[in-house]
Design a binder for these strands. Structure first.
Lengths: 183, 183
DNA sequence: ACCTGAACACCGTTCAAGT
DNA sequence: ACCTGAACACCGTTCAAGT
C-alpha cells in the first residue's frame, strides 16, 4: 500500500485540478499548499519535490485512462479499432500527454496501445510476419520486459523485448507506404 | 532588416549556447545577461520577454537547418530520400525539436519536409492521387498559404491550403497499412 | 507522524532614472 | 538609443523547531 494519508490524497487532487485547468506550468508548491490549506513545506513531507508530485499525479491519470479494447469480430476490424481507439485517446487526452512528455514518460501512453495491438495480432496468428520485422518504439522495450499476459504470444513478447532494428523498421514501413501510394 | 545591434546578436548567441548545453529550462534572463555582460533588464530592451527571446533563437536555429534535398533519379528513390532525410533530422536535432515543441511551433519542422515532399510529388505527377486524399498536419495549413514555389503544383498547394479531413486521412492511411501487413 | 516559519538562492518583469 | 538599479511578486527547497 502506498501512502494514502488524507493530506496526500488532497494534495494530488488539488494538483490534478490545477493541471487540468491551467496546464503543468501553473503548478507551484505554494499554490497547491494554499488550495489544500497547508504550509508549502508540508507538501515535501507528503510527496517530495515538485517533480515527484507531478509523477504521482501522472500515475493516477494513467491509471484512470479507459482501457484500450478491440471491437468487432474479424482480425482486420479488431486491429483497426485498436488503432482508432489510440488515435481517439491521443486527441482527447492532450493534458495527460503534455504532462507525460514533460516528465519524459510520453511512451508510456503509446505502450498501452502496443499491448492491445500485440493481443490482437496474436489472435490473428501473425507471429511469423511480426517476428521478421519487430515494431515497437525504442524505449518501450524495457516496459515490455515486465508484461505477463497470457493472451500475448511469447514470440511477440520476445521480439518486443529484444533489441529493435529501428533503421530496418523505418525502411520497411516506408517501402510499404510507397507501395501503397505509387500506383 | 531586423534589429542587428551588436548586443542583440550576442544575446541570441549566448542563449543558444545555453540551450544547446543544458536545455531550454536552463535559460534565465539573469544568466543570459551575465554571459553577455549586461544588466538583466537590458535584455528586455533588445529582445523583449523570455518567450520572445526563445522564439528569436528558434528562428535562427530553423534558418540554420540544412535544406532537405531529394537524392537519386527515380521518383520513388527521391521521395524515399526525402523521408529518410526528415527522419535523420528528427534524430539529430533533438534540442531544436524540444525548443519548438515548448513554444508550440513543433509543426514548423515537419512543414519543411512537407514542402520538399510536395516538390517531389509534383515532379512524379502524383497530383491526381494527392488531390483525393490530401495529407498534411492540421495546423500546417496556415504555413502553406504563404508558400510561393514554382516547383510545386498549384493543385497540391491548393489541397494543402484548404481544410484537411483528418479523419479521412487517418482511415485511408490505416487501411493501406493493414493492406500491406495482413498478407 | 505531521506540520509550521524562517531563511536561502533563485526567478520574470516593470519602471524611473541616467547618459 | 541604450543601459542600470531598485523594486515587486513570485518561485523550489532545506532545516530547525514545534506538537
Amino acid at each position: 500500500m502506498t501512502d494514502q494519508s488524507a493530506s496526500r490524497g488532497r494534495i494530488l487532487v488539488a494538483t490534478r485540478r490545477l493541471i487540468e485547468a491551467d496546464g503543468v506550468e501553473a503548478v507551484s508548491m505554494r499554490k497547491v499548499a494554499a488550495d489544500v490549506g497547508l504550509a508549502p513545506t508540508a507538501i515535501y513531507w507528503h510527496v517530495g519535490s515538485r517533480e515527484d508530485l507531478l509523477h504521482a499525479v501522472l500515475d493516477e491519470m494513467v491509471a484512470d485512462l479507459p482501457p484500450i479494447t478491440a471491437r468487432g469480430t474479424g482480425a482486420r476490424d479488431r486491429i483497426a479499432s485498436v488503432a482508432r481507439a489510440a488515435r481517439q485517446e491521443f486527441l482527447e487526452q492532450v493534458t495527460t500527454l503534455q504532462l507525460a512528455t514533460e516528465l519524459g514518460r510520453g511512451n508510456e501512453l503509446s505502450f498501452r496501445t502496443q499491448v492491445a495491438l500485440a493481443r490482437e495480432m496474436t489472435a490473428a496468428g501473425l507471429e511469423e510476419q511480426y517476428r521478421q520485422r519487430p515494431p515497437g518504439e525504442l524505449a518501450t522495450r524495457d516496459l515490455w520486459a515486465e508484461v505477463d499476459d497470457d493472451d500475448i504470444d511469447p514470440a511477440i513478447r520476445e521480439a518486443m523485448t529484444g533489441p529493435t532494428d529501428t533503421d530496418a523498421l523505418f525502411t520497411y514501413s516506408l517501402d510499404r507506404l510507397l507501395d501503397a501510394v505509387l500506383d
